[in-house]
């Protein structure tokens, strides 16, 4: 039994600035961090590891510097970490990311579960987890905060808008994790030094996945046309109304906001 947990190294949107003239991100000097939801994914995988004595492998695609983010997963307790890194891999195409991750997962060998965070805080695509499931042709268990394993099956709680479904699936399966389940552990200083001194982050290039740059290009299905800043001045809309009307408007406004995800 093996679990693969896919994690992303991200820049914190709070820290990132945008160059107003070139419309590019200013990330120099910022540290890549482990995507917050992916910490929950790692935690979920580790809980399963402790209960079911399986091994957990962390996998990421990203720039060389993402290695440090994988170290964090090692310090949290995963057994092995792999980074797929190549200059020609672009960040903007989640289809490609999911495709490469599924390739890498296949190369890792037998697995029972692939665990991902539901979304990353930078692009908020919510796309990679489901698409890995599709590429590996395994069932997707989406927005999960609770996992139970047994009898070669997995049962999870999926949460959608205040309602939860318990879903059962054969293994292998892919799971996307949301907050709410287990709080991610803090890596201990002991494990931090172990992760840096005694463990390795294995690096794979395109070749290791058996891919050429041409194939990579062929799997890049989207293109960025342009980037722009839409500056919304934070201004308060003030509403002076009778309580009756105000409460109606508030309810409909709230309902609108609640539809956003």
């Amino acid at each position: 039994m093996g679990i693969v947990v896919c994690v992303k190294a991200v820049y914190d949107p709070e820290e990132v600035r945008v160059h107003k003239r070139t419309m590019t991100l200013l990330i120099e000097g910022l540290h890549l961090k482990l995507n917050p939801l992916d910490k929950y994914a790692v935690e979920a995988a580790l809980k399963l590891k402790e209960k079911w004595k399986t091994s957990v492998t962390a996998l990421s695609i990203g720039p060389e510097e993402a290695e440090d983010v994988l170290r964090r997963t090692l310090a949290m307790g995963v057994n092995k970490a792999y980074l797929v890194t190549d200059e020609s891999i672009k960040d903007h195409d989640p289809f490609l990311t999911a495709y490469l991750l599924s390739k890498a997962i296949k190369k890792l060998g037998d697995f029972d579960l692939v665990v991902c965070g539901e979304k990353s805080i930078d692009w908020e695509n919510r796309q990679v987890g489901p698409q890995i499931a599709a590429f590996l042709q395994i069932p997707l268990l989406h927005r999960v905060d609770n996992i139970e394993l047994g009898n070669g099956k997995v049962r999870v709680r999926e949460v959608f808008d205040g309602e939860a479904l318990w879903v059962e699936s054969p293994l292998p399966a892919a799971i996307t994790i949301i907050k709410g389940g287990n709080k991610p552990r803090f890596p201990s200083p002991w494990n931090i030094s172990k992760a840096y001194r005694k463990m390795r982050v294995e690096k794979w290039g395109l070749k290791d996945l058996g891919l050429s740059r041409e194939e990579l290009k062929a799997k890049t299905v989207t293109k960025v046309r342009r980037q722009f800043i839409f500056e919304r001045k934070r201004e308060t809309k003030l509403m002076v109304e009778e309580a009756e009307a105000a409460s109606d408007k508030l309810i409909s406004h709230l309902n609108k906001l609640l539809e956003e995800i």
């Binding site: 990132v16 945008v18 930078d122 960025v224 046309r225 342009r226």
Partner: peptide
Amino acid sequence: IYNGKLNVVIYTP
């Protein structure tokens, strides 16, 4: 993206 700090226009050619 990035909490709305930047907008990207993407297409599937």
